[in-house]
Design a protein around this nucleic acid. Structure first.
Length: 490
RNA sequence: CGGGGUGUAGCGCAGCCCGGUUAGCGCGCGUCGUUCGGGACGACGAGGCCGGAGGUUCGAAUCCUCUCACCCCGACCA
């Protein structure tokens, strides 16, 4: 399994693609735009799911499941929403196949046309709000805090593994509230949860704030987002949380009776993160030797590689390895003992490095003699020989250090690649170098669009600031309320 | 969806321009043996409707037409 990896410098997108496929995270499938998530990649996704799911439940949310299919008519009920998604919907028109009367294979049975076409959900607001209508009568039914883990389909023209696929996995939260303020607080709470998750689990520092009207979710009043910087200087939207106002309540007629016995429309939020986070994970930390996975998400945190010349040595080393394995497992560390006899140690070292395992232990005859083990960390590639005494404790600490270091590295990178810019010339120069540009903007969609047309840069985040510092727009020179973050984005 | 490129064994490729026996090579895979502190080596072996469908021809991986998929660059998007 010799791994050849192009460098980030040479070709960043091929480097990304190679890591995803060669490390066994995912591969493209026989179906256009759709990927197969392989066991190693899915194991990481499951860890993300588990961590997020706990955070959602700890803040009072419950999981439920709604249909994959949505009647076409539901989409027309919210004007902005349908406009945002219309161009990328997969549509089910028939429900039966039959043998091709004049040939081989099967054809769609024209007799089996659906009365009303079904849309494969690109997002579930419509079906969920249609359902909520029957669930909500009184203020006592609120807030309704529901999350769904699901797949959705958006018929994308150009797809990339994890970053943009026609079908992807995600969670979507959909909540209903009695007051505007409570809904806004919910949207902001979920943004904090996403931030926490990105920083503590993905080891990925993110900017937080709101989107400009241009970049807002179709049907939202306000879109909050977290935005991360990838190693090629491009920004990646890593999660969004929307304050939907009463748009969907009005579209689907969801009202409740308040304490004063009056009918009111409910207030809504929705929020989601997707398997795109897998792409963020790869692009944020990996290097020219392959994948680097933060310990908290690594399916295998420690791999043990035995070094031996004969069966006798192997047996002695294996005994020690299993002992270490159970010692580490007692601390809930995920360990793999790589006792394959088909590969030499050097091969295994390279392979596990490619797969991003945070810590590697090597045990050979010398170690057996000295009661030691060689410990190598993936993030810095440093190696040291440690005494076996208290090894579990040392490894636990090391894993924490690796997690911390990855975050710090990513944060330093972002700091080094965030620039305050005050003139348009500077902006044009800087945007070519990548990274975030912190500049004043006059707040108009026209200016934003012109900047995008001229530079491909978009406003990624408008920071939420207590005391915004006004200035002059970097493009138009008109008054600006505060600086915003620009970048080229995925 | 526009421009460019590529489809030949699990992966990476040669062969195609100039049609002609059983379609090659490297990696990987299987068996056996020797190896094992940074990507080992030898012997033997398995594996291909040459992306798909039509056509031209005595004969097509090779020429023609259509189609599908993937990759890169744009516009759109999580």
């Amino acid at each position: 399994m010799a791994k050849e990896l192009i460098t980030r410098e040479e070709n960043y997108s091929q480097w990304y693609n190679d890591i995803v496929t060669k490390a066994g995270l995912a591969e493209s499938s026989a179906v256009r735009g759709c990927m197969v998530i392989k066991p190693y990649g899915y194991a990481i996704w499951e860890r993300m799911q588990a961590a997020l799911d706990k955070m959602f439940k700890d803040t009072g949310h419950e999981n439920a499941y709604f249909p994959l299919f949505i009647p076409k008519s539901f989409f027309s009920k919210e004007a902005d929403h349908v406009e945002g998604f219309a161009k990328e919907c997969a549509v089910v028109t028939h429900y039966r196949l039959k043998n091709d009367p004049n040939g081989k294979g099967v054809v769609v049975d024209p007799e089996a046309k659906l009365e009303e076409e079904l849309i494969i959900r690109p997002t579930s607001e419509t079906i969920i709000w249609d359902t909520y209508k029957d669930w909500i009568q009184s203020y006592r039914d609120l807030p309704l805090l529901i999350n769904q883990w699901a797949n959705v389909v958006r018929w994308e023209m150009r797809t990339r593994l994890f970053l943009r696929t026609a079908e992807f996995l995600w969670q979507e939260g959909h909540t209903a509230h009695a007051t505007k303020q409570e809904a806004v607080e919910e949207a902001e709470l979920m943004l904090r949860i996403y931030t926490d998750f990105a920083e503590k689990w993905l080891a990925l520092p993110v900017l937080r704030g709101v989107k400009s009207p241009n970049e807002r979710f179709a049907g939202a009043i306000e879109t909050y987002c977290i935005e991360a910087l990838m190693q090629d200087g491009k920004a990646l939207q890593a999660g969004t949380s929307h304050f939907l106002g009463q748009n969907f309540a009005k579209a689907f007629d969801v009202k409740f009776l308040n304490r004063e016995n009056q009918q009111e429309y409910v207030w809504a939020t929705s929020w989601g993160v997707s398997t795109r986070l897998m792409g963020a994970l790869v692009m944020a930390h990996s290097d020219d030797l392959g994948l680097v996975i933060p310990p908290k998400l690594a399916p295998i945190q420690v791999v043990i590689v035995p070094i031996y010349k004969n069966d006798e040595q192997y047996n002695a080393i294996a005994e020690k390895a299993y002992e270490i394995k159970s010692q580490l497992e007692a601390r809930n560390i995920r360990v793999r003992f790589d006792n394959r006899d088909t590969h030499k140690p050097g091969f295994k070292f390279a392979e596990w490095e490619f797969k991003g395992v945070p810590v590697r232990l090597a045990i050979g005859p010398r170690d057996l003699e000295n009661q030691t083990v060689e410990v190598a960390r993936r993030d810095t590639l440093e190696k040291e020989v440690l005494q076996l005494r208290n090894l579990d404790f040392k490894i636990q600490n090391l894993l924490d250090q690796v997690q911390q270091n990855l975050y710090q590295k990513a944060l330093d990178y972002r700091t080094m690649n965030t620039f305050k810019v005050d003139t348009w010339d500077e902006f044009l120069l800087q945007i070519e170098k990548g990274g975030f540009i912190l500049a004043h903007w006059d707040g108009t969609a026209e200016t934003e669009q012109k900047i995008k047309d001229e530079t491909k840069a978009t406003i990624r985040v408008i920071p939420i600031e207590e005391e915004p510092k006004p200035g002059k727009c970097v493009y138009s020179g008109n008054p600006s309320r505060q600086r915003v973050y620009f970048a080229r984005a995925y």
